[in-house]
Simulated assay, not measured.
Amino acid sequence: MNATETDPRTETVDTDAGRARITWVPAARPRLLLALGHGAGGGIEARDLKALAAALPAHEVSVALVEQPWRVAGKKLAPAPKTLDTGWRGLWPVLAAPGLPVVAGGRSAGARVACRTAAGLGARAVLALSFPLHPPGRPEKSRADELLGAGVPTLVVQGGNDPFGKPAEFPPGEYRMAEVPHGDHGFAVPRRSGLTEAQAMEILTTSVTGWLAGIE
């Protein structure tokens, strides 16, 4: 594994799955690092990842936005889960290098990666954004075992109208749930909901900030 700086906030990391990239958003006096992976259909420009990167440094949490090798290579389709896990594990020594406790996180497919690998990597906790509990319309294809097997404190933040799993569909377990009312899988909210995108993101960031305050 090699890490190479490309600008003051970004570095590329060679992993067994290919070259990945980390964008660092540091806090002035950090006590935690939150590493956030993206989903299978987009990158670190997702509204929830951007909102957390903007909000958390003021609360003593540095953020590392992680781009998987397939995304860095410009491919349009994510590889198999095993390959995603390989890329994430290859990045971990760089994420842990600053010496801060690391919270593993991500949205959608990135949340699944964080859950599957957290205990083995020594993550302090998991933040699962828009956890894809099942494919849309296929509740029998549950991925609950990944969430329930995380083995560390976990917060799920889920849109109230997420077709990949509404909050009420989740089984009981050792995790916390926060809901963004009316939100879809990308936390977009319809106009008829009475919420603006900014208000939806404030609900999300407030929920995450409050939960992280209890992680040491």
Rank of each mutant, 00 (worst) to 15 (best):
3 A>L: 05
10 T>D: 07
10 T>H: 09
11 E>P: 02
11 E>L: 15
14 D>W: 04
15 T>F: 09
15 T>S: 11
16 D>W: 05
18 G>R: 06
18 G>M: 08
19 R>K: 08
22 I>E: 08
22 I>N: 11
23 T>W: 09
27 A>Q: 12
28 A>T: 15
28 A>R: 14
31 R>S: 14
32 L>E: 07
37 G>N: 14
38 H>Q: 10
40 A>V: 10
41 G>F: 13
43 G>V: 08
44 I>R: 06
47 R>T: 15
50 K>C: 04
51 A>Y: 07
51 A>V: 12
52 L>Y: 03
53 A>D: 07
55 A>V: 06
57 P>H: 13
57 P>A: 11
58 A>I: 06
59 H>S: 13
61 V>Y: 03
62 S>A: 05
63 V>R: 02
65 L>W: 02
68 Q>A: 14
70 W>D: 07
74 G>Y: 08
76 K>G: 07
77 L>Y: 03
77 L>Q: 14
82 K>D: 15
82 K>I: 13
84 L>F: 05
86 T>K: 12
88 W>R: 06
94 V>D: 12
96 A>H: 02
101 P>Q: 09
102 V>N: 05
103 V>L: 01
104 A>E: 00
105 G>D: 00
106 G>H: 00
106 G>Q: 01
108 S>M: 03
109 A>T: 02
112 R>N: 01
113 V>A: 00
115 C>K: 01
115 C>F: 03
116 R>V: 09
119 A>N: 03
119 A>K: 13
121 L>E: 15
122 G>M: 12
123 A>Y: 02
125 A>W: 01
126 V>C: 02
136 P>M: 13
137 G>E: 14
137 G>W: 09
139 P>S: 12
139 P>N: 06
142 S>Y: 07
143 R>H: 14
143 R>N: 13
144 A>R: 11
147 L>S: 04
147 L>N: 03
148 L>Y: 07
150 A>S: 10
152 V>E: 08
153 P>M: 14
158 Q>D: 06
159 G>A: 12
163 P>S: 07
170 F>W: 10
172 P>W: 07
191 R>D: 12
194 G>A: 14
197 E>Q: 15
197 E>W: 02
202 E>T: 10
206 T>R: 13
209 T>H: 02
213 A>V: 07
214 G>D: 13
215 I>M: 05
